[in-house]
């Protein structure tokens, strides 16, 4: 038997529309606990500080914060404050939403980036978004700084940093 006649033909769009389908809209809602290390990180954000975890064995200053050093396989040794500035490691300019719908021309593009934070060990980056810049001018290696919400509006979430902007 040769694999040259494979079964299944697939439905055309019209056939799919006409086919009997069972529809289900699940309601999958979650509340995820912050946990211990991230809880401290979020408390720091509320105060306008970025905290990183340190491991005195390997010497790394780690972001995102964590309760244990996965390389040394031991608890981390507390948190240290790092800067709220960094360098763009990589970025994208996104024109679509998750459901594949397109952003309208007048909507601002999403510019996600990996940002290596000053004061953390080399390569210790976080994902955030870039703002206050013409998307065409964003470059890898560009220096950026956090733009914080006013202190009274901060709630202890990652969005207490509105975005990072070039400076």
């Amino acid at each position: 038997m040769k694999i040259d006649q494979v079964p299944m033909k697939g439905l055309t769009s019209e056939e799919y529309e006409r086919a009997i389908k069972i529809k289900w809209q699940p309601k999958l809602q979650y509340a995820w606990d912050n946990g211990i290390a991230i809880g401290k990180y979020l408390a720091g954000l509320k105060e306008g500080k970025i905290l990183a975890s340190q491991c005195i064995k390997c010497g790394r200053i780690m972001l995102p914060v964590r309760s244990f050093c996965e390389l040394c396989w031991r608890p981390t040794d507390g948190e240290v404050e790092v800067k709220d500035t960094g360098v763009i490691n990589t970025f994208a300019i996104c024109h679509v939403n998750w459901d594949a719908s397109r952003l309208r021309p007048d909507e601002p593009r999403h510019i996600p980036a990996v940002i290596e934070i000053d004061g953390a060990s080399k390569g210790q980056g976080i994902m955030h978004v870039i703002g206050n810049v013409d998307p065409k001018k964003v470059k890898i290696g560009m220096r950026v700084r956090a733009v914080w919400k006013p202190a009274q509006e901060r709630t202890g979430t990652i969005t207490d940093i509105i975005f990072f902007e070039p400076y």
């Binding site: 529809k23 699940p26 999958l28 509340a31």
Partner: peptide
């Protein structure tokens, strides 16, 4: 502290 979210899909 917690963060709320959902998986916003439906099925046919």
């Amino acid at each position: 502290g917690y963060f709320e979210g959902e998986i916003p899909v439906n099925y046919q």
